[in-house]
Every structure is written in structure tokens, then in C-alpha cells.
Design a protein around this nucleic acid. Sequence first.
DNA 1: GGCAATGTTAGCCG
DNA 2: TCGGCTAACATTGC
Length: 263
Amino acid sequence: MPELPDVEVYRRRLVDATRRRRVDGVTVHDTQVLRGVGRRRLDSALSGARFVRTRRRGKTLYAVTSHGPHLRLHFGMTGDLVVRDDDEEVPAHTRVALRLSGGRRLLFVDQRRFGQVGVVDDVDDDIAAHDLGPDALDLDPAALGELLHGSSAGLKALLVDQSQVAGLGNIYTDEVLFHARLDPRSPAADVGNAGVRRLHRQLHRVLDRAVAAGADPRSMPRGWLIHRRTEDAECPRGNGPIRSFPVGGRRGYWCPACQDGRG
DNA sequence: GGCAATGTTAGCCG
DNA sequence: TCGGCTAACATTGC
């Protein structure tokens, strides 16, 4: 799940949960998700801190403290951020718990443990170190056009490349391309200016709508591809069967009848 | 049992 | 150098 909309939902949850509260300490249940820190350093770095603002770049979330270090979270394939009162039981697969003042905990839950919890001294340095491109929602149509037309990669391959655009993963790339009616397999550079504009518009429409749905697919419109990610499923527009194709070691889904490429 | 699943990363190849 | 592919990471569910 954790692509841009999910992480944006987690960001808002973190802001709500930590407002006017202090981190009293950190409990690490599983050190495997720690990145670049041990449990002692994570605890000492955050104990007593307040989060003064947050930043999200693509799928990476930062909670900024007044003097650093800052908390860095990446949710991998199955990461989640949940809030519990101290007297409530923690969910299965809770890996790290931030104990907050006022009897509440912010929990990093991650079944498959591909997620990452760490601290960084400087957010911009960390973004550079991970070679993250601009956030998908920060690209204006001109910048998006330049990105596409300057690339020799396939359209979907380009969009899921975090160093080019940060935030899109397998699911939402397919969704956006479906609504923009673009062929995911076509060369990015072949997308015409009308296609670039559609892509830009749908990028915002789909991601904003997904955030509004709390990133829960069940709350997303019935006409979305996300409900039909199966070979031979019926296209939501009724135009024909959904097909799949391989991209970067996973499967993409699209409607060949709707998504005719060009623009 | 086999296979695929939203993530990143390293290594290989052309 | 770049793009694309594979495997690895860990776990679950069909």
C-alpha cells in the first residue's frame, strides 16, 4: 500500500497524534527496521523532542524536531503508522513505538519488515543521499513534459523510478495512466503535449482523491482500475478486458482499448 | 507446494 | 551512462 497517498495519510496522522505532545521515549520491538541507528541512539535522539513540522518527499516521511536529529520513516511494502493509547494493546507486527506525553503511542507497524525507521541530521541531505526526484505533486506541466521528453525509458518505468519522480508505485502509476488514457509501455518521450497535460491533471486528481479516501481502496470510486487489477477483468469503462504486462519485476495492469498511447 | 504481492537496493548485461 | 532485468530482503494468502 504505501505509495504517496498512503504516506500522506500517515503524515497527517502523525501531525494529529503528536500535536502539543513530547516524545517521552522510543521502544524498539524489532531492530531490523532500524536504518543507520541502534535502539539506544534512536531513543536518545528523540527522547524529549517535539515534532515542529513534517515533510514528505514521495514515499519518505520526515518528522522534524527543533534542533535535530529528525525522524525518518519509510514504509516499504507493508508499513503502517497507527496511534494507540497506552492502555491499549499494540497491533501485531508493531516494530517501533514512540511513547508520547499524555499517555499515547505512535506505532510503526510493518508485517514484512521492509520498512525503515531512522534519524537524519538534515532532511535535504537525506533526500539527496537517496537520490529522490521531485515529489509527484510538485511537478508542474512544463517540468513533467521535460522529464518525459528527456527520457529514453518506457512511460511506466519512468514514473515508478523514484529518482525521476518520487511517490508513485505500481498501483497508482497504473491508476493515473488509466485515467490519462496513456499506454504504459510506450516510450515516455513519445507522449505528446496533450498527453502530458492529461497526465499532469490526472496525477493530481487521482492522488488527491486517494488521499481524501484515506488511501483505502474500498473508499475509492467504483470506476477506478484499482478494483480490477486482474488479467481479463472488465475495464471500468466497459471498453474491453484488462491486460497485464511485466514492468521492473512486477505486473502492471491496463486497458489496451482505453489507453491507446500518444496524446 | 508454488506463486505473487503495494517497497528499495545491488549487481549484471547490452 | 542508461535502461531493463534479476535476485534478495520477510511474510502472508490464494
